[in-house]
Design a protein around this nucleic acid. Structure first.
Lengths: 213, 213
DNA sequence: TCACATAGATAGCGAGCGCTCACTTTTTAT
DNA sequence: ATAAAAAGTGAGCGCTCGCTATCTATGTGA
């Protein structure tokens, strides 16, 4: 005990603040574990070590490991949409514009938050409960990405093509991220990826409705 | 013991035949486990149950679980190339031709053999040894797919665009397969995938070098 | 035929997993 | 001030995992 008037360095927090703090630490720890070590190595013990809390604290707030993972999925889903929206507002007039946008989208897709989301998607394939829990987050994510794509290309592509272009772009970038065997990005021989992205940009721009000069 | 002349139902096999038989059973069992239950649930016990052999038999032929998985990866890599090559030889003159080819490629990508390969790719991301072991198979796979693509589009696309188109197509199909949350394929709302594939086909055909009539 | 090498089966070990429980510490309500 | 409630701790339980040791069955070469 400390003499009155000289407070300890430990700050006083309400129960709600403590609760939110450790939950946030657990979610962040889970994201880091999933992105760095993968789904299988994301044990409750590993998450707790990363978050700096005890296992008892984890199981106070999440009844099961899967509940923690589902909460993490919803956590990163919102982050991913925000990052995706941030790319909107750029120009997409020329091929070079589109190449720049695709490059920025690529770095977003390779980010830890997206890596986490992908890890959970794969795990959900063999886990019916996780799969069901991921569906809502996934649908809202897709809807919001479509909205962001409309901001980008809304006056360049008709609605009919918008969703299709979005599907091509994000699935290709996801496919690249999934099957990247080299830890270093852009280590592919001959810069195939760069050429593929430029070709895709050319294809997209050439499908803009013709303007009559 | 049975009287001479009346052989038992059990056939007599050489040691080499027994060996190859159980190894083949183990590899097939591993493929089935990976495709149906996923990487984490592909335990040595599960594989042995699927293959109908004992754990002792498994560890006689494969010193470790990872060795079994690496062998399985090389096993399916060759299968995948064969399936991919089989799509070559079709026409790709019209948009409808290309749509048909993309549809066939899509079913190949969704096959169990490819699902297995994808499961191993993801696991390799957080397992340096598995990753290193997968690199050769992956490179030969890419090279052979490029060869098959040349058979398909060799006289329609110049070399410069060939690898780029291949990258777009297979990465998009892989991305679709990776992030498919619905067990039923083509259950997406509004047939977005079909429209995306058709748009991609249109884009590819419209990038054929112009012929002067 | 028979000693030997190879193939396969079975029991079980140590480690790590998800999770529980008895307990202490901190905040809140009276 | 004090009792109740909530948050957080850490030892440990039951279980499954990859893997080993020991044993039996089967084919091989002399």
């Amino acid at each position: 005990m400390i003499v009155a008037g000289v407070t300890t360095t430990r700050e006083r927090r309400t129960q709600a603040e403590r609760r939110e703090g450790t939950i946030a630490a657990l979610l962040d720890g889970t994201v880091r574990c999933l992105a760095e070590r993968g789904y299988a190595a994301t044990s409750t013990a590993a998450v707790c070590a990363e978050a700096g809390v005890s296992q008892g604290a984890l199981f106070r707030h999440f009844p099961t490991r899967q509940a923690l993972l589902v909460a993490t999925a919803e956590h990163v889903a919102t982050r991913n949409v925000d990052a995706f929206r941030a790319t909107a507002g750029a120009d997409v007039d020329t091929v070079d514009d589109v190449v720049a946008v695709l490059g920025r989208l690529r770095t977003i897709v390779l980010s830890p938050a997206n890596q986490t989301w992908r890890e959970l998607l794969v795990a959900a394939r063999s886990d019916a409960d996780l799969r069901a829990a991921l569906v809502p987050a996934r649908e809202s994510l897709q809807a919001q990405m479509l909205g962001a794509a409309a901001d980008l290309w809304g006056d360049r592509l008709r609605d009919h093509d918008l969703a299709a272009v979005l599907s091509i772009v994000v699935n290709m970038l996801d496919g690249l991220a999934f099957s990247a065997l080299d830890p270093d990005p852009a280590a592919a021989p001959g810069r195939t990826v760069e050429r593929a992205l430029r070709l895709l940009a050319e294809m997209i721009v050439s499908h803009y409705p013709q303007e009559h000069p």
